[in-house]
Design a protein around this nucleic acid. Sequence first.
DNA 1: AAAAATCATGCAAACGTTTGCATTCGTTTG
DNA 2: CAAACGAATGCAAACGTTTGCATGATTTTT
Lengths: 339, 339
Amino acid sequence: MSQPISIKDIARKFKCAPSTISRALNDHPAINIETRKTIQEYATRIGYQKNTISLSLLNKQSKTLGVILPTMAHFHESSMVEGMEKILQPAGYLLNICVTNESHALERAYMDRLVANRVDAICISLSQETYDKNRNDHIDHAISRALPLIFMDRFYHAQNLDQVITDDYQGAFLATEHLIQMGCRRIAHLHGPKGITVSQQRFKGYLDCLQKYQLPFYPELLAHVSFSADSAVEATMSLMDHQPDGIFGVNDEVCFGAMKVIREKNIRIPEEIALVGFDDIPLAQFAYPPLSSVSRQSRKIGEETALLFLAKIDGQQENKQISLEPQLIIRESSKKRII
Amino acid sequence: MSQPISIKDIARKFKCAPSTISRALNDHPAINIETRKTIQEYATRIGYQKNTISLSLLNKQSKTLGVILPTMAHFHESSMVEGMEKILQPAGYLLNICVTNESHALERAYMDRLVANRVDAICISLSQETYDKNRNDHIDHAISRALPLIFMDRFYHAQNLDQVITDDYQGAFLATEHLIQMGCRRIAHLHGPKGITVSQQRFKGYLDCLQKYQLPFYPELLAHVSFSADSAVEATMSLMDHQPDGIFGVNDEVCFGAMKVIREKNIRIPEEIALVGFDDIPLAQFAYPPLSSVSRQSRKIGEETALLFLAKIDGQQENKQISLEPQLIIRESSKKRII
DNA sequence: AAAAATCATGCAAACGTTTGCATTCGTTTG
DNA sequence: CAAACGAATGCAAACGTTTGCATGATTTTT
């Protein structure tokens, strides 16, 4: 494997100092304009490519961001990444993307690696295990080394840190309220994985909304699922024994699972059971019937995170908490009456 | 922002040479066992983290892979990434993920940046524009600098390069054959974006299968879509004028779009029109009716790509072309008769 | 007691690039 | 003619780590 060409190689060719080559390539006015041209031409011709590693070492910045995500399988996460790239590519940043698979150990390992790699910041969506075990040493560690750390998507309890999240509580409240307004009185909830803040917040929004409208909360109308459609099948079956007239799902995928079960039981949607999901994935409107959902502007979370980072390295001192407003998108799956 | 602690800082503390610290931290037997322990303890206590950048510079390897993708929005791509991570994380590699949005210019820019960053290899899924414009200089350039380059998912015409792809042709053939065996005689095809090899291969598989079974190809039963469900709506409407009795979609999303149109026209699936998609996304089985699809083992593409890379840096010389066998998953959407 | 072996540590170069401060010219100015 | 100036280039240090070789100190062997 041939070594890449370095500035020193070029210097040897021109019988001059590496500093001259460096300046010539950077169009430094101190270098004779003719010399500059000649060197630049030669460099492009032989395909010289600057070694950014040495630059990172020198300037103590890698122009790279670490991104730690629990998973990438859902539309939500990949949209966030796309949003980040959209802002950060023009700014010259690369992304180191790490998928923890909700494992605390992996999250830790990746965190260490990113720190060792001297990324300019870490954007993290905490893993479920980190919540469960409540082990935050790696987080505190990162904070203590003054490495910009931005919590993305999933809330971290500590006050006053940089966070970009959606108001899940508000979104869940909107969804539940809508079902109530459509006439539902026995609203079931497909509850996300325990311990995950996202699940808890959505459950809380659902609960508080029931209370506001003085509807009782029936524990038998609660079923736990993971975030997959698959997991919703069994959960929904168990719900069916208790005659719900509406279902609020922790995300759209589980609603797809629920709808399948409901259809197979020949129960009509939305007449007998209305449904609202969360995330507004692109396929939501192609469900049968089209699925109402709460959009949380996944792409925008990524964009805002990127912008927050840029502001931060631009000298902005105070930490910022950005909460994006969710939007209720109403489709057939919840239209029990004309609105 | 406090500077991270370096080996030199520790050396100063212990009034010894940096080399001693380095060896101590790496558990080098030449260093007194007691000294080693003391230094290691001190290092962990003050939170020393090795600077991998300097190591990369020294060892001429960054332990990082560049991954260039046209998009991340689909299950297929994020699964590939997850597959890569699964293999590469234990091997100590990080991923630099770049989304080109199918733009040639961005692909070029990212390529340069990754080369400048001295990634150990680049895994690329070519952008549509690169195919369209047939501009491969950046590719040839990378190849000429002996940087391991692995084509992932999308085929590159040059022979004898490293490639990990699915046999799209074969998958399309299987899907079409299945529709024929189910009794379809007027099979429409929702053709993917022009110029993309994936689209072309699937179209070719469809065509050749029709021919094998001596069925005529009706140009009016061809409609072009992007990869989104949305784009399939209009396309399917236009098809409906020509009474297809089966549809083979370039991916699952477009089939969701098609199914919505068909349902709204009160045409029965699969009795009047049978459908088969491609990718076998997790929601396919939750379509109404459950969608038959060709699985292309997205995750496995990522895993194989990672393994190919590992073999490569392990000294394997010859290039390898890996083609993964697609699998037809039969569900309700195509079951016109009992099988 | 001298030679040899063992142990622990230090020196310095290397990786590729940038940059403040010389240095070496040749030219202009008083 | 000397002093000052300007242009073009070179020197060397710096970033953080590793590693072959040398050095010095102690112990073992003959």
